[in-house]
């Protein structure tokens, strides 16, 4: 019975030691996606793309607003017949609705495009992350700076990822 207890203790100690040893091998890395977007060449190109889309949407919104203004001015002049005025009012209502819809959809489009562009850049960074992880023996790479309390500088591979991404252009 005593022998059984000693054996159990030994096994437990061995297991604990093995777990501790394996825990030491797990290395966690960190990469900051926000910095990749704002500091890498590809990230900056993506920002320019988004700005270009913003300008195009602005142009459309301005055009729609101008259409509303033209109709409103015509109505305000007051030199229309009753039937013409009714047609014009209807057109104005439609134009105003189109304008509001356009503003709403443009904002949603821009938000969606921003998400897509970030995902596009991060997919390119992902292949580099995997290579670095396997070389440096990382079991895990964290990407959310909000949940990190402290990161040792040697674990932050953001600069390395940016450099590798830049070298691919």
């Amino acid at each position: 019975m005593k022998l059984l207890r000693i054996c159990t203790l030994c096994v437990a100690v061995s297991l604990l030691w093995a777990a501790t040893a394996s825990a030491h091998k797990s290395v966690v890395g960190f990469v900051n996606p926000q910095r990749i977007i704002s500091e890498s060449k590809i990230g900056r190109i993506a920002q320019e793309d988004l700005a270009r889309l913003g300008k195009e949407k602005d142009r459309r919104v301005r055009d729609a607003l101008q259409k509303v203004d033209v109709l409103r001015n015509k109505l305000e002049k007051g030199n229309l017949s009753v039937s013409e005025e009714q047609v014009m009012e209807k057109s104005l209502r439609l134009a105003a609705r189109d304008y509001e819809d356009l503003v709403k959809t443009s904002n949603m489009d821009i938000q969606g495009e921003e998400r897509r562009l970030i995902q596009f850049v991060m997919r390119r960074a992902d292949s580099i992350l995997r290579s670095i992880a396997s070389e440096m023996g990382f079991s895990m790479i964290l990407t959310d700076p909000e949940i990190i309390g402290f990161v040792d500088e040697s674990m932050d591979i953001t600069d390395r990822v940016i450099r590798e991404l830049n070298s691919m252009i």
Binding site: N32, Q34, R35, I37, S38, E39, I132, M136, P145, E146, I148, G149, F150, V151, D152, E153, S154, M155, D156, I157, T158, D159, R160
Partner: peptide, 23 residues
């Protein structure tokens, strides 16, 4: 590392000379 960055930095942002190769 650049002195200024438009991007918001994490709370525990490591210092500039983060080099993976220095491990």
């Amino acid at each position: 590392k650049k002195a200024t960055s438009l991007a918001p930095q994490p709370k525990a942002q490591p210092k500039a000379q983060a080099s993976a190769a220095s491990m």
